[in-house]
């Protein structure tokens, strides 16, 4: 069982909600990313989602776009990302790591993913492929890595069924019509849709996009198996990248974790 499945199974057993924390690899720099991942885990994040920078990230709002640009200025590629995760794995071989990015960067590094050095990565989420498909459909096969599919408020019932069947790891429910970091959550709609997904899915359903405050997190955790926090963290990384004092991020993660417990 890979780390992600194991973690989600254990959380379910303990009746706990999952907290997924997102950051962009190489923002503000490669070394700092390793210590930021450690900080997120130490502060209560159950799963780390690592953004793979891309020149044209069409699903990202301005906060995460800028982080992609900063990472690209540091020449971060999937190859560098394996260096980062391997460094992290020296300290922590338990926390699940998920890569989140755009198809073109994965296609350009098929071999790296197929090898998945030290089994360091547990799961991949490709933002721009239809949810019924996974990496194997694009000629990238690695049975230890599972594919996380997205379902959004605009996904119709027939597709919810086929996506739910295809997804391994967890289903990422996109809570709003919009890009990452937007703020138009409709909790009632989210509730209804997650209920529908849960009828068909054998894996947990986590909610992400637009979750900022403890209140948001609590509301969404109540109707899902966990929440994903991205833009808020990335904004704090940007704000504090000069001093590299990131205590604020640790405190924030701890608060969110408490709010959903």
């Amino acid at each position: 069982m890979n780390r992600l499945t194991k973690k989600l199974t254990n959380l379910k057993k303990e009746n706990k909600k999952a907290l997924v924390a997102y950051l962009v690899a190489g923002d503000p720099d490669i070394e700092t990313t390793v210590s930021l991942i450690k900080l997120l885990v130490d502060s209560g994040a159950d799963i780390i989602e690592i953004g793979v920078p891309f020149t044209d990230p069409i699903a990202e709002g301005p906060i995460i776009q800028k982080a992609h640009d900063r990472a690209l200025a540091n020449d971060v590629s999937l190859k560098t990302i394996y260096d980062i995760v391997n460094k992290f794995r020296d300290f922590d071989n338990e926390t699940p790591l998920v890569l989140m990015g755009y198809l073109n960067t994965f296609l350009s590094h098929k071999k790296l993913i197929e090898e998945n050095q030290n089994n360091a990565i547990d799961s991949i989420l490709v933002v721009d492929i239809p949810g019924e498909l996974n990496l194997a459909d694009y000629g990238i096969t690695n049975e230890t890595i599972n594919t996380i599919s997205l379902i959004s408020p605009t996904t119709k019932k027939d597709r919810i069924q086929s996506i739910a069947k295809n997804s391994s790891g967890f289903i990422y429910y996109v809570t709003l019509r919009g890009v990452t970091g937007a703020s138009n959550l409709d909790v009632k709609e989210i509730n209804t849709n997650i209920d529908e997904i849960k009828k068909h899915a054998s894996v947990p359903v986590l909610a992400g996009f637009g979750i900022k405050s403890e209140e948001d997190a609590k509301l969404l955790a109540d109707c899902s198996d966990g929440v994903i926090i991205g833009s808020s963290i990335v904004q704090m990384i940007e704000d504090d990248s000069q001093t590299k004092e990131f205590d604020r991020i640790g405190a924030y993660i701890t608060q969110i974790k408490q709010a959903i417990s």
Binding site: D56, I58, S77, N104, L107, S108, H109, D128
Partner: peptide, 19 residues
């Protein structure tokens, strides 16, 4: 060949798949 703006087609990109 690479993927940009929703389609797979010839693309100006570097070895890491950046446009």
């Amino acid at each position: 060949p690479g993927v940009l703006h929703g389609a797979l087609s010839y693309l100006m990109q570097n070895d890491s798949g950046q446009v």
